[in-house]
């Protein structure tokens, strides 16, 4: 039986892991949705096929992340979700439209297919943007001044950029020929935009949020903590060069942009959690104050210990089954 402090670490860590995995996995399939062309049926089919077997499980990480917040930090969960009421509603509508469009596009009448592709794209943009917008509001401690809203809008655009980056990188990995070349260009463009976005957010955030400023510039911070942000910025540059090489020779290392994008996600996520730790509601509640009853969390822990590794195993199994360049998606 773990004590409440240990449980705060365990569940805080698990929740962070779920959010990170969600951002990377659903990030790439939302990104593919954002990039979906509405005037090129063949490309659209291939792009959809590349995410077909995965998107559903990817989205489940969001349910897990929200679920863990609900279970382990119920007070924080209700404070955050009530504060973000309307953005959440809009994000959910985006996810709903997108989820059903995926199925309807393949089953509805041919003439309606384009319409569903447009819905898929819009739903993806809406969901990605609202996630970023909510992240921005969260970072600003749910303040609703004009400045905070502007920051949240910037953050929304940043997340759309980041998802586009990893989505394009996924396509570089999974497609070939002309579409792959397009994806390389998309990836480079999105990478540059995201690069600017990350720098802008990193400058603005400590300036308008004094706690974040303290965490990075006034604490007894070991120099090693500077490594992640520096590495992150360096990776953007490496990414750009890798993509230039891929333009000349796309046969080799098609997997590299996705790996680099994923590492960039991990580093940015580290920066974010470091800025706020140990707070779960910025400036209001720490994970230690918000943690639920130990008897409940210990009971769930048995499941976590057995099931989470199993989930990771069969997720890897599914990626192995659909390994390699994407093939036309025939149901069955």
């Amino acid at each position: 039986m773990l004590n409440p402090e240990m449980l705060s670490y365990v569940y805080g860590g698990l929740m962070a892991l779920a959010i990170l995995v969600y951002a990377i996995l659903d990030g790439y399939d939302l990104g593919v949705g954002i990039l979906l062309p509405t005037n090129n049926d063949t490309d659209a089919d291939t792009m959809i096929a590349s995410i077909g077997p995965f998107w559903d499980a990817n989205e489940t990480w969001l349910v897990l992340a929200v679920g863990l917040a609900l279970i382990a930090f119920p007070t924080a969960h209700s404070v955050i979700l009530q504060a973000l009421y309307l953005p959440i509603t809009i994000m959910l509508i985006g996810l709903i439209i997108r989820g059903v469009a995926f199925d309807f596009r393949a089953k509805a009448k041919i003439k309606r297919k384009k319409r569903w592709d447009t819905m898929f794209k819009l739903g993806s943009i809406l969901a990605a943007f609202m996630q970023g917008y909510m992240l921005g509001l969260y970072v600003m401690s749910f303040d609703t001044s004009i400045l905070s809203i502007l920051f949240a809008l910037l953050s929304g655009a940043g997340v759309v950029g980041a998802y586009t980056l990893i989505g394009a990188a996924w396509l570089v990995l999974k497609t070939e020929g002309e579409l792959q070349f397009k994806a390389i260009h998309w990836c480079q463009f999105a990478g540059r935009i995201t690069f600017i976005g990350v720098i802008a957010v990193s400058i603005v955030n400590p300036l308008i949020n004094s706690d974040v400023y303290k965490a990075w510039f006034e604490s007894q911070m070991p120099l090693i903590l500077l490594a992640p942000p520096v590495l992150c910025l360096a990776l953007f540059i490496v990414q750009d060069r890798v993509l230039n090489k891929l333009k000349r020779n796309n046969e080799k290392r098609g997997w590299l942009p996705f790996l680099i994008s994923a590492v960039i996600f991990i580093l940015c996520f580290f920066g974010l959690t470091y800025s706020f730790y140990p707070y779960i509601v910025p400036g209001q509640l720490t994970i230690f104050e918000a943690v639920a009853a130990p008897e409940s969390l210990n009971f769930l822990l048995y499941g976590v210990i057995v099931v989470v590794p199993t989930i990771i195993l069969y997720t890897l199994f599914s990626y192995r089954v659909f390994w390699g360049k994407v093939q036309p998606l025939s149901y069955y």
Partner: peptide, 17 residues
Amino acid sequence: GPLLGYEVLTAFFMEAT
């Protein structure tokens, strides 16, 4: 919480994957 948690862990991922 734990009942919902077990649903997500033991069912949702398995079904979706």
